[in-house]
Amino acid sequence: MSTALKHTPLHPVHIEFGAKMVDFGGWDMPVAYGSQLEEHHAVRQDAGMFDVSHMLNIDVNGPDAEVFLKRLLANDVSKLAVPGKALYSCMLNPEGGVIDDLIVYFFSSDQWRVVVNAGTADKDLAWMQHVAQADGFDVVLTPRRDLAMVAVQGPNARSKLWETRPGWEAETHALPVFTGAFVDDDTLVARTGYTGEDGFEVVLPATQVEAFWRDLAANGVRACGLGARDTLRLEAGMNLYGQEMDESVNPLVSGLAWTISLKDTERAFIGREALEAAAADRTLVGVKLLERGVMRGHMKVRTGQGEGELTSGSMSPTMGVSIGMARVPKGAQPGDPIQVEIRGKWLPAEVVKMPFVRNGKIIA
């Protein structure tokens, strides 16, 4: 018996806008509203918006909130001292595998927010509650399904948001990257994203999101689906949970060593012992195909150091060639020739430094 798909508050609007809907982690989500290619280019060249309300905001409040998060996450939340500042981190199991990658916001010592992925949200919340109970932390975890979330991304995203909601500009104009500000009691505007472009992610009451979406559309912000979101994040060299990492893979072999903080030798975060004992004999690299073809996840890769596997792959709309990420034996360097097996043939490719594209410019 199949389980009914979940709907975000914008679901009726997606249908009205003519979106092609797909099952994404148990949610009925738009993959595209027409041309995925045009949606991708809209974000690189102008401004696009994504419904990311399927992701879950979890408020973490209480006297032990900070010490709880220091135990829970591989990155160290004590780095956060300015209200609204955010941090990217992995949440690990005791074996060092990635339960999820997430963003945590600091508001005060006893008020924080964690934003987790849609497909892992229930698992994440159960794990967080287990850790809180097992270690006796005085915290309250509140999943905020009363909130919706819209990402507005692209070189003109910020100006178009301010044109749409002029009252928000004063609070958000000077926001540094990876920082959020409340423009209303329950509306958080954060300078974050998943596309390699500037812009905002806006968390607001679900009751207000439809009007917000329609107003942005009327102001020339293009509705974009998950298809464009995936090619944009791949060009930006950003990991996707379930492809670049999961519970069987640690951050050291997922290009995420920079998200692990070992500076505080007394901070016994979950998974630390396993990471310190792990041999990081593999690494994640960018790959660019040198012949016609399209790389996809799980294709085999040959390097001078041995075999590996693509974790993600697609045609890059910005570059006009196929790009991907691959987990390969350590030692592979940008510029190294490699081969990718596509339909039984080994095609030439090269290792490239990520990101491939940033702020509309080809880097790789």
Rank of each mutant, 00 (worst) to 15 (best):
residue 331 G to R: 11
residue 165 R to P: 00
residue 6 K to M: 10
residue 313 G to H: 00
residue 43 V to L: 15
residue 104 V to L: 01
residue 223 A to P: 11
residue 155 P to H: 14
residue 248 S to L: 15
residue 171 E to P: 02
residue 13 V to P: 01
residue 278 A to I: 13
residue 2 S to H: 14
residue 268 A to P: 04
residue 363 I to R: 02
residue 204 L to Q: 01
residue 248 S to N: 15
residue 151 A to K: 01
residue 360 G to D: 08
residue 265 T to K: 15
residue 264 D to M: 13
residue 185 D to A: 14
residue 264 D to S: 14
residue 43 V to I: 15
residue 83 P to C: 03
residue 329 P to L: 03
residue 64 D to A: 15
residue 106 F to N: 00
residue 6 K to I: 09
residue 118 A to V: 12
residue 58 I to P: 00
residue 208 Q to I: 02
residue 213 W to N: 02
residue 183 V to M: 06
residue 136 G to F: 08
residue 19 A to T: 12
residue 221 V to L: 15
residue 179 T to I: 06
residue 10 L to F: 10
residue 142 T to E: 15
residue 341 E to I: 04
residue 349 A to H: 00
residue 173 H to K: 12
residue 194 Y to E: 01
residue 102 L to W: 02
residue 296 R to S: 05
residue 284 L to G: 04
residue 228 A to M: 01
residue 150 V to T: 07
residue 228 A to C: 05
residue 200 F to L: 10
residue 10 L to S: 09
residue 344 G to K: 05
residue 148 A to R: 01
residue 196 G to Y: 01
residue 363 I to P: 00
residue 358 R to N: 10
residue 35 S to P: 12
residue 338 I to G: 04
residue 133 Q to T: 10
residue 227 G to H: 07
residue 193 G to Y: 03
residue 238 M to I: 12
residue 47 A to I: 08
residue 128 M to N: 06
residue 242 G to I: 08
residue 221 V to I: 15
residue 218 A to K: 14
residue 342 I to E: 03
residue 222 R to W: 14
residue 137 F to I: 09
residue 327 R to Q: 13
residue 160 K to D: 07
residue 75 N to Q: 12
residue 178 F to W: 03
residue 303 T to R: 03
residue 364 A to T: 05
residue 261 S to P: 03
residue 49 M to G: 02
residue 300 K to H: 13
residue 79 K to I: 07
residue 89 S to C: 09
residue 298 H to Q: 14
residue 145 R to D: 10
